[in-house]
Amino acid sequence: MSITPTGYPVWVRANGHTAYGGHINKTNYQSVGTINPRTDLSAENLCRIAADLAAVARTAPFSVVAFQCNDAVPAAPTVSKYFAMAGTTPTGTRNGDGDITFVWPESFADDYGIIANANIVAAVATPQQTMAGMLFASVQISDADADGINETVRVRVVDATGAAVPDAIVSLTTWTG
């Protein structure tokens, strides 16, 4: 029988230090500390690991996507890189020049098979400049199927006049919570 980890998958943002083994009153057994720091993990070590991991787990991005819009020959965007806490590359759809929508599954399983919702609460898109001039990227986070979970992020890239930028290259970072 496989183990069920404490807490929730990290993208839920609900794990405190206790989920990782920390406790404000944790002590070494019979107050005997580490005999050999090369072979032992003390209560103090474990509590530091637990608190630090809980802290960074709260703000770590859920995903980072590097993609290019395909507008000269209209097609779905090409994803060149994808890093994520779970799951595989989301589905991308072209809306127009420099305008795409990514849709993620609404839940994922962690390494232990624990399934949890992934509700997108923040997104940052930055155009990757390959030409002179100013480019801007903006996003729209939405719950397209109105079930209470944001699963969709639309990205638009425009130039300094507000005109859509075809074949834009973008880095998109998302956070769930």
Partner: peptide, 20 residues
Amino acid sequence: DEYDNAWAVDLSFAVACGEF
């Protein structure tokens, strides 16, 4: 923090993205 130790907030960098 979760052990009631106080830590300074010392912001150094920021990025932001607008939402249409």
